[in-house]
Design a protein around this nucleic acid. Structure first.
Lengths: 136, 136
DNA sequence: GGAAACGATACGCACCTGCTTATCATCTGT
DNA sequence: ACAGATGATAAGCAGGTGCGTATCGTTTCC
């Protein structure tokens, strides 16, 4: 009898996280910092609140996380001219290149971990995961 | 550009865990209790230590978890005759049927969440996840 | 223009987590 | 037989996590 899907997903996520931690550390980033950079890599966040919801992170603790990234020069917080309560968060040039470098390393590692799976299997794996993650 | 595999797995695992929590609750089990029952469903654990490692749970906190399951009459702890330091953990009859009931409900839910994926896609999804989870 | 809502921030709380230490019973190797 | 290793258990600790509350500036709406 095969395992529960939930257990399989959790196991795969844990294995990936464990394998990726050293890579992130060697680039001076934590998992959550990388998650923020990734979220911002497709465009600035309109506010810290939407950023927090996007990455499923507590909005009150996101503040300290952004403090760190800002101090490291990887992101900027600027008041939204259209609503000066909100802060628009975006990557700096340094943030963009740091993210690209880490992402490339992570991609390479994932490529290694997928060794043995056909292109079609990889496609189905990604499609299935995306399907589960988004109750469209 | 597609998302990181790690992010996809984590997202899918989170979505599944969220969907399954109400099911578990309605059967009076926590996620970890269900994990223990599942691990034991394929056979007794030779010791609490190996059980903890098998499910990636802290061995010192497993004790309280087993206390609860034992008090609920779902598992038994018996000294191993071959090594009386170790406690063999196994499901009771009630544990077996409880696990079967919850598992069936979870399977049904997972089936619903996989709606729209072909049989071949589901097979590839499971195969890919198992491949990632076990660095064979 | 004043009240209510909202975003960012700070702070505290309860819980979970992995980890360490200590104790006791039992086993193992010499 | 004795020393050291091992399993179960208890207790504690540091860090992480989600959640609630309070404050302050800003916006929205009547």
């Amino acid at each position: 009898m095969s395992e529960d899907l939930g257990a399989l997903c959790a196991g795969a996520a844990r294995a990936l996280a464990e394998a990726e931690r050293p890579v992130l550390e060697s680039h001076g980033l934590t998992m959550w910092q990388y998650v923020v950079l990734s979220a911002l890599s497709t465009g600035a966040a309109a506010s810290q609140l939407v950023l927090a919801q996007q990455i499923h992170y507590d909005k009150t603790r996101l503040i300290a996380l952004l403090d760190g990234l800002e101090a490291a020069g990887l992101v900027t917080r600027a008041p939204d001219p259209a609503d000066r309560r909100a802060r628009v968060v975006r990557l700096t040039e340094a943030g963009i290149s740091r993210h690209a470098a880490v992402r490339a390393a992570i991609r390479e590692l994932e490529e290694r971990m997928l060794a043995g799976l056909s292109a079609e299997e990889r496609r189905a794996l990604r499609a299935g995961l995306a399907h589960l993650a988004n109750p469209d």
